[in-house]
Each structure stands twice: as C-alpha cells, then as structure tokens.
Design a protein around this nucleic acid. Structure first.
Lengths: 344, 344
DNA sequence: TTTGCAATTGTAATCGATTACATATAGCGT
DNA sequence: ACGCTATATGTAATCGATTACAATTGCAAA
C-alpha cells in the first residue's frame, strides 16, 4: 500500500506561495515565521491535508522514532499494566513501540540483536533482566550505545539504569504480616532461580525471617517458576511434609493460586489450615477464593516511569556517568488468604 | 542519541571495492550478483558491521515499516495472548508495532486519527470494534485507504476484513452443556451493551435457549461490562431474586469469577446452588475455585491470523472487492463450576 | 543619504538506500 | 571476425523534509 498521491511539503509550499523551507519552519518553529505567512502555511496544510513523512524527517535527523521493548513473555498478563504505562508515555511522544517477545520460539539472540541498533530504534526498554550478555555487551559497544533501561527486572551488575518496585520491602511486608499473625513456621515458593526478582524476594524473605528469629528451613523453601502449576506442585509436596509450615509466601500470585487450588482439591482449606501470601496483586486476586493477601506493586506507574527515564536518556544522548535507579514503593494488601496461626 | 559513525552502504561499497548499487543488490537480491562479488560484499558488510538504515529504505519505498495496533484497553490481560500472536508474526516480518490504547485518557479520536496515516503506518489492526465512525470513514477515504483489519471484535456493518472466534458457537456450546445437565432455568450476564461480542453472545444465547424450548426471561438477563465487579453485582441481584435461574452463562470469565466470588462470600456454593459458565478460558480459569467451565477461544492463533491477514492486505495494496472474514472455532472446556441441575 | 542590524524568506545540499538505465564484458553462433 | 545476447556492474536520479547559508527587505541610527 503506497501513499500514492499523499500531499508533500512541496504541495503545501505551492498552495501557500512560499518555499518548502518556510513551510517546514512554520510547522516546527512557528515563532521564526511572520504571522501572516504562518497562517497561510497552516491554511495550506489544512487544505491539502498534509501529513509529515516521518521517514524523511527521521532520515535527516538520524532518529527512528521507535523504541524497542523487550518483554520476557507477552502471554503473561502480569505485563499488561506495565505495557499500558509504557504505551501511554511513548505514544504521547509520538514514538512507536517495537515489541519483541524474548521468550517466543525462534527468537534467538542474534534475532533480537537485529533490533538493538540505531537504524531500528532510538532506545531500548527491557522488562527481561536475564538477557544474554551478548546482547548487553553489544549495546554497550562504543558505537552502539543506544539508551538502554530496565523496567521491573534488572541486571544484577547494575550497569544499566532501571526502574523497579521495592522487592525487598515487599518480601519484608509479607513476612512481617505473617509473623504478626503469630506464624512461626513460614515457607516460601520461589520463581525461576535465575530471575532477579526471585532472587531478591527469596533473599529478603530469608533475611526477614532471620531478623524475627524465625527458622529458615530448607525444606520449606520450594523452587518454582511463576506459574500456576508450580504452586500446585508445591501443594502436593506440602501435603506430604512431615513438619509443615503454617504459612507460605509465594513469589507471585499465580503460584499462590495454583497452591490454593490444589490444596482445595485435596480438601485442605486456606487460610484455616495454611496461610498464603501472594505477590503482584493481579486483578483476580481480590476475587479469588479466598481473596488473596498479596503485595501490590505500581505496575502502571512503573511502566510510565521507565518510559520517562528512557526519554530522558534519548534527549540527553545517554545518562552520563550515573546509573539512575528508581525504586518504587510497594504495599501489602491484606485479604482473606491469611489468618492467625494456631488454627492448624 | 545519534548513530554517529554508523557504517553506511558507501562504506561497505568502498571496503568491498564495488558500487553502492552492487552492495544493495548483493544484500537484497543475491542471485543477481556474481558469486565472487556477493561474497566480497557480505564479507565487507560483516567487517564494517553494516546495518541497513530503515528510514532511508522506507523513504524510497514509501513504506513505514510500522503497523498501528488499536487495543481497547491494554490493562486488560485478555489481550495479552492476542498481542503475543500478533507480535510473533509482525516481528518476524521486521514490522514494528505502534500500539495505541483507545481507552487511555487523553486519547481522543483526533489523536488516534494522527496514527491512521500513511506516513505513520502501512496498515492498521483494531481489536476495538467500537471505533467512532469518524475514524473508520477517514480510513476509507480514497487517498487514505490503508489496509485495515479487525481482530477479535469487528464492525457491525462488516465493511472491514476481520478475524474472530465463533461467538455464536461459543454461546451455543455453553447453553447446550447446561441444558444437557438438566438445567431449565438459565440466565445470562452480558458484557457492555454496545460491544459486538456482547451482542452476539447474548443473541446467540437467546436463540439457543429458544431452540431448546427454554424460557428466555428478561429478569434472568443481566447487563454487565466484562469486569469482576459486574459479576459481583449480579450475584447480589441473583440472591434477591424470587425465582432464580439454576445456571448462569457469563459473557466472560471475569464476570464469572466476580459472580462466584460474591456468592461465595454470601455462603452460596457454585456449582451446588448455581452452575456458572464463563467465556475466554483465561489462564486462571483452570485454577479458580471451583475450576471454571468456560468457552475457550484460540487467542494466540487469532492474533497470528489477523496479523497475516493484514500482511496480505499490505502486499496486495488492499483486499479488492471482497471483505475477507475469518471465523475461528471455539470449544467448551468443562470443569467444576457446572453440575447437574436439581441440587438446588 | 548611508550603514548596520534584525527579521524573514529562499536556495540548495543533505540524510542513506534503491533502481532505471547505461555501460561493459564474456560467450556463442555463423 | 562480427554481431547478438546474457550477465554483471556502475552512474545518477530519487524518495521528502530539514537547515546552513545566502539573499532580501525594512527600519533605525549616524
């Protein structure tokens, strides 16, 4: 589909009786053009239905008008609110989004690499902290230093700017809540081991437990992967446990739901027989049965913040020496999946 | 951030000792170039780290390399799988996605209109069937006929190509399932009244009921809006009903969860006292309590199909006289939120 | 009147890749 | 040896907007 007869700047110039330079100026720097001329140009632009050709402008400006957005797994609805936040900022700036699902089959590093170049984008947002270092290095190359920011997840070496929620605080809040309910036997279900979020949430959980003088028992720390099935699997393991924790903190809400659901099928009730805390406060959490006690994080705001941070980097040709890191507060939403200990 | 010293085609040409024309050909139409030359060019391209400048190519080709994607509400996780399907196709074709949330505040028609132009995109996918006709007309204008396809939702007048699931079949399957369980008093909770999906699901429900000789009672047809809260509201209304339906079919899973959750809080059990069928088979459905009986639709496939349809339109400069409409089959997933009638 | 400056507008080069057309070379048949 | 064709490559115009620089004009100061 070609833009056959699309009016161009020369058409506007002809109609307005001025040169293309004047049209360009009237449109982008109105104050440099005489009022009369400006009005004539605007009228001509309206009359011809002129729309700027972004490819031409971008060619000259050496910009692309696009931002690459790396998402670990688009199918995961957790990202939708973050996406919405990012979209709201970038779209309002006229930037387009090059969404790439890093988990999609057939998306190998060299394929992704194709997108991390100046000719494709003006900057990169990654919601995936586990990018192969090939990619990260390449984007650090002297002649390839596109502004690059992490959102939600981040890179352990902290060499890139990022915006994320306070995961340490989240884990603390969850544990403190359970402790305050009288729980002394607290377990944890982790996300994927290689994931930074998993790591921080797990470490912070252990720290918080230790600080409250709680036992940190290996058999109460389960491995998982952020899925419903991971939670369900742990449910079966919990049932088989000789000495069971009376409360379990889950690295996300999916795990929590999987856990509760599988327990329910085994005739075990949450919170009567086990208290469960989730993480993320996904939409369904408040209408799950029981309504989920969970750690809420500002996903939409996070999306906006990371997009704004990137815009800054694009404006200033990078971030200079500093590595800006923004950490957003989280809060605990107490609902019905947790109850005082001692009912078990 | 500028692509300062980025190698261009002239650099490759110099290194390879050929003209830029030959480089261009070696890269895009390898068979038109002698083997020896081709290899020299490829080597030079690799050596210089050449990446094509898309703005330049697009300027010449009068393409933008971007596709506008109108999403009714990005926050709604229902769309994530469709998005993933669309992404998988478009990304593999090197097209970028200009995502626009049509529900976002500040996104008024004239703002959206800005995106529906040749200089912004080569085509448009809308997951929103309720676009103001201003937009649709403008995109039908003789000089503005960008390929435009609907996905999931569609426009009642059927003047645009679309890919969608078989909503009629979905409603039928749900009703037939309830009827086969012995239910004779069946209700329905609708989505937003102006939404095509709502309309078709509601009409098809009424048809199916009528065909099975079931009563279609107005007070059993509830208005809603695809949210958890809508379902919760109906739960309270159902409780107050003198003559209650023994089963309710919901226009989507959120409504179903809201309904079940609110009933649960009132001490009413699903499916013992009410059978509930949802629609969409969202991830959590199989782990809801009770696991949700619901109509599954191929969301990822739908995304891929709609993207492929658009690509076709872009290739062929439109769709010609026909208005291609692709309807994908759905299926009923029977779980535990429905039970034989008569237990009430 | 002349000079200088500011304000306004025009001319033309430029961004980087593509491709129609022209040119060059090799191979082949007669 | 000549001419023809097929193949390979180069030359240069082109896409559409921007902007450095030049040119023009008007006006004020000297």
């Amino acid at each position: 589909m070609r833009q056959q007869g699309a009016p161009k700047i020369t058409d506007v110039a002809r109609v307005a009786g001025v040169s293309t330079a004047t049209v360009s100026r009237a449109l982008s720097k109105p104050e440099t053009v005489a009022k009369q001329t400006r009005e004539a140009v605007l009228a001509a632009a309206a009359e011809t239905g002129y729309r700027i050709n972004l490819a031409a402008r971008n060619l000259l400006r050496r910009r692309t008008g696009a931002v690459v957005l790396l998402v670990p797994n688009l199918c995961n609805p957790f990202f939708s609110q973050i996406l919405a936040g990012i979209e709201s900022v970038l779209t309002s700036q006229g930037l387009s989004i090059l969404m790439v699902d890093t988990m999609q089959s057939g998306t190998r590093p060299d394929f992704i690499l194709d997108f991390l170049h100046h000719s494709r984008a003006d900057g990169i947002i990654s919601l995936d902290g586990s990018l192969p270092s090939v990619l990260l290095n390449s984007s650090q190359n002297s002649n390839e230093n596109l502004p690059f920011v992490f959102g939600c997840e981040w890179h352990p070496q902290e060499t890139f700017p990022s915006v994320r929620a306070n995961n340490q605080q989240g884990a603390r809040l969850a544990i403190e809540h359970l402790v305050s309910l009288g729980h002394r036997h607290i377990g944890y279900i982790n996300g994927p081991a290689e994931n930074v979020l998993s790591q921080v949430r797990k470490n912070s959980t252990q720290e918080a437990l230790a600080e409250h003088g709680m036992p940190v028992r290996n058999e109460w720390f389960f491995d998982g992967d952020f899925t419903l099935e991971a939670g369900a699997k742990v449910a079966r393991e919990w049932i088989d446990l000789e000495d069971r924790p009376s409360a379990i903190f889950c690295a996300n809400d999916e795990i929590a739901c999987g856990l509760i659901s599988e327990l329910h099928q085994a005739g075990i009730n949450v919170p009567d027989q086990l208290s469960v805390v989730g993480y993320d406060d996904i939409d369904i959490a408040e209408r799950y049965i029981p309504a989920l006690t969970t750690v809420w994080q500002p996903r939409f705001d996070l999306g906006q913040a990371v997009a704004n941070l990137l815009l800054e980097g694009i404006e200033n040709d990078g971030f200079g020496e500093t590595v800006p890191i923004e950490i957003l507060p989280v809060k605990l939403t107490i609902r019905q999946s947790t109850a005082p200990a001692g009912n078990q």
